[in-house]
Every structure is written in structure tokens, then in C-alpha cells.
């Protein structure tokens, strides 16, 4: 039974993530009075890319070749070590700081891969990604630290096991930290107003610019990994701040409820992201640090309020 749950936990993120991309695209299409593609389109795209030939620049080094595998593996590893639908799958890598800095490995390799072929756009993407992720890191650590302080643990499973919303005296801190976290979520998952995931303008891209040189299997892995990252952040946001409905013990009923509730949470977050992307324009690049600093300040206030 436990093995089975572990297997579900391991495969949950990569299996569900393409669906979320499809759902967000569908909602956005509806906002634009369009029919939109099927919510399963991203699965088909991945399938298609897996069977396509690859073009690799002759200037590419091993970083370019292996980065997609490293990045994809990181998202699988992180996806397996955070609470998704159950709060009792504690592992050695389930510490907040470990998770944040394992994710940093993927950002590191993504940026290197962007610069590796020497194309101007890749360099752009990497430089912008570094600017944003350096500023986002502070906000991310501090918002997670807030929930860690409230629940006196840095282990994500323990945090999600204790429903922090029952600490009603810290409600304001938690809400501030959540707002801060949500801003970081948008930045880290290359969403509006930071980056436009559906843009075709090579000069404005951040994430897309870094993977511009990829094709075939490696492109599929890169895109899949970025979809995984979105679920990981949604999982952290929903299960650390609002752990309602998460399975607390090994029983079929609890697990089924846990999975359904988690899917609903994902749907909720996707809807918010889609609404946001349909209603605002992308920010000018130099306004983005303001937003990230706002997140950081909110989180600092949140921490100060806990004592």
C-alpha cells in the first residue's frame, strides 16, 4: 500500500502537469472569445516532440546536451519530496531549504544552457532569468520561513500536517506571506506580469529565450519541466498555506479525498493565473524588480509580526 502511494506521489507531478497548461490555455482562450485547443493538447505536443528530429548547434557543449535531463530530473525529485495530496510521505529531501536550493540547481543549468550556444537571445534570456531569480529568492525563502516559524518546523510535510490556519493569531502574517509567495510563484513559473509564456517575440522572452535553441526530445523535456515547476509551486502554495483536505493517514478514502481536493486547488490556482493573464498587460522589464521587492517586504513584515 505504502509503495503504491509512493508511486502515485512520484508520478503525480509529471502526469498532471501538462493538463494544467492545457486548462490555463483553455480558460485564457475563453476570455478571448476563442474556442481554444483541447485541454489535452500539451500531452500531444510532448508526444510529437519526442518523435521529432533534433538540431543541436555544433558549438553546443555537454551543458546544452545534458541540461534538459538535469532540469527535468530536478523537477521530478522535488515533485516527489513535497506534500501533494498526503502529508505523511516524509523523505530526506523534504526540508524547505533543500527544496528551494535543489530548484536553484535547475535555474542554474537552465541559464547556462541558454548561454551555451552563444546565441544572442539565449544570453538575453539567461541574464534576465538571473536578474529575476536572484531577486525572487529572497521573497521565496522569507515567505516559506514565515510558515516554518508559525509551525516550528522547516519540514514541508510537518508544516502541511499541522494546519497553520488554526494558529489564528498569526493569520495576518500567513496571508501576507501568501501574497508574497504568489508574486514569487508568478516570477518563478514565468507567468504574467513577469514573462509571457505564449509570446513569439524573441526580444521580449525570458524563459522561452533560454530554450529557443532546443528542439525535439530536449525541448519536450524543457517544456515538461517548466510545467512540472508550475505544479510544484502550486502545491507549495496550496499545501503549506491552506493544507485543508490533505490526506493525514493511509486510508483509501483519505487519499481519494486528498487527490480530489488537490486537483481542485490546482484548478483554482490555474483559474487565478488565467484570469490574471487575460486582464493585465506584461510589465515593463524594469518594473519587475519593484514587484519582487514588494514580495520581499511583505514577507519581512509577515515575519516581524510573528513573535
Amino acid at each position: 500500500m505504502t509503495i503504491l502511494i509512493w508511486i502515485i506521489q512520484l508520478f503525480f507531478v509529471p502526469v498532471i502537469s501538462p493538463l494544467i497548461i492545457g486548462v490555463i490555455k483553455k480558460i485564457k482562450a475563453k476570455f478571448q472569445n476563442r474556442q481554444g485547443s483541447s485541454i489535452f493538447q500539451f500531452y500531444k505536443d510532448l508526444w510529437k516532440l519526442m518523435y521529432k528530429d533534433e538540431v543541436v548547434s555544433k558549438d553546443a557543449s555537454w551543458i546544452f546536451l545534458y541540461a534538459p535531463f538535469i532540469i527535468f530530473t530536478v523537477t521530478i525529485a522535488v515533485g516527489a519530496s513535497i506534500p501533494l495530496f498526503a502529508s505523511f510521505l516524509n523523505g530526506p529531501t523534504s526540508d524547505l531549504l533543500v527544496i528551494v536550493y535543489i530548484m536553484a540547481i535547475s535555474t542554474f543549468f537552465l541559464s547556462l544552457a541558454g548561454m551555451d550556444t552563444g546565441s544572442a537571445f539565449g544570453g538575453f534570456g539567461s541574464s534576465r532569468e538571473m536578474t529575476i531569480s536572484a531577486l525572487a529568492e529572497g521573497g521565496l525563502i522569507f515567505s516559506l520561513l514565515t510558515v516554518a516559524l508559525v509551525s516550528s518546523s522547516t519540514n514541508v510535510f510537518i508544516i502541511s500536517g499541522i494546519n497553520i490556519l488554526t494558529h489564528s493569531q498569526h493569520l495576518l502574517s500567513i496571508m501576507l506571506a501568501f501574497i508574497g509567495f504568489f508574486i514569487i510563484l508568478l516570477a518563478e513559473t514565468t507567468r504574467f506580469p513577469f514573462d509571457n509564456p505564449s509570446t513569439h517575440l524573441e526580444l521580449t522572452m525570458i524563459h522561452e529565450a533560454m530554450i529557443l535553441e532546443y528542439s525535439g526530445k530536449r525541448l519536450a523535456l524543457m517544456e515538461w519541466a517548466s510545467a512540472n515547476k508550475l505544479i510544484i509551486f502550486i502545491a507549495l502554495g496550496s499545501n503549506l498555506f491552506f493544507p485543508l483536505g490533505i490526506a493525514q493517514n493511509i486510508s483509501w478514502l483519505a487519499l481519494v479525498i486528498g487527490i480530489i481536493v488537490f486537483l481542485l486547488k490546482i484548478l483554482f490556482f490555474s483559474t487565478i493565473i488565467a484570469i490574471l493573464e487575460s486582464s493585465v498587460a506584461k510589465f515593463r522589464f524594469f518594473r519587475l524588480p519593484d514587484l519582487l521587492i514588494t514580495s520581499f517586504i511583505l514577507n519581512v513584515i509577515a515575519i516581524v509580526l510573528i513573535n
Binding site: K28, N33, F192, P193, S198, S278, A281, K282
Partner: peptide, 16 residues
């Protein structure tokens, strides 16, 4: 113009 700023609602309406 609206589409290039990422304001997708306006972009879709212009095309329509």
C-alpha cells in the same frame, strides 16, 4: 499593439 504588451483580450478583439 495590445497583443504585444501581453494584453491578450485586446489582441483577440482586434483580430476579430
Amino acid at each position: 499593439i495590445m497583443m504585444d504588451t501581453g494584453f491578450s483580450f485586446g489582441g483577440a478583439q482586434g483580430a476579430r
